[in-house]
């Protein structure tokens, strides 16, 4: 399923999104967690170490394949190394084999 979590700043939105992602990942599902907040801190709730979280870079637009309104170059999310490093995947530390 594709879930978006919306709310005011400080509402607990990020905590809910991050823990939902980790909970779903614990069942062995492949979960992509997207931090679309311009003040990004989802990675902390996902459990990424702080120094790794600070190193995360935003996904370049061409890699994300445009805005979804036109045909875009094929983008393989699972095999793109840069995307892997910029999209925090919601596998908790004990199941890192599920990371991609």
């Amino acid at each position: 399923m594709r879930v978006a979590v919306s709310g005011k700043g400080g509402s607990g939105k990020t905590t809910i999104a991050g823990l939902l992602a980790r909970t779903l990942a614990r069942t062995g599902r492949r979960v992509l967690a997207i931090d679309a907040d311009p003040n990004p801190n989802l990675s902390i709730v996902l459990g990424l170490p702080r120094d790794h979280a600070f190193d995360l870079q935003p996904i370049p637009r061409d890699m994300a394949g445009g805005d979804g309104t036109r045909a875009a170059a094929p983008t393989s999310i699972s095999t793109s190394p840069s995307l892997k490093s910029s999209a925090a995947t919601a596998s908790p530390p004990p199941t890192t084999s599920r990371s991609w």
Binding site: V3, V5, T14, R30, A33, I34, A36, D37
Partner: peptide, 9 residues
């Protein structure tokens, strides 16, 4: 590619 997508808006 993913079973679930969770987006923090």
């Amino acid at each position: 590619e993913a079973d679930d997508v969770v987006t923090d808006m």
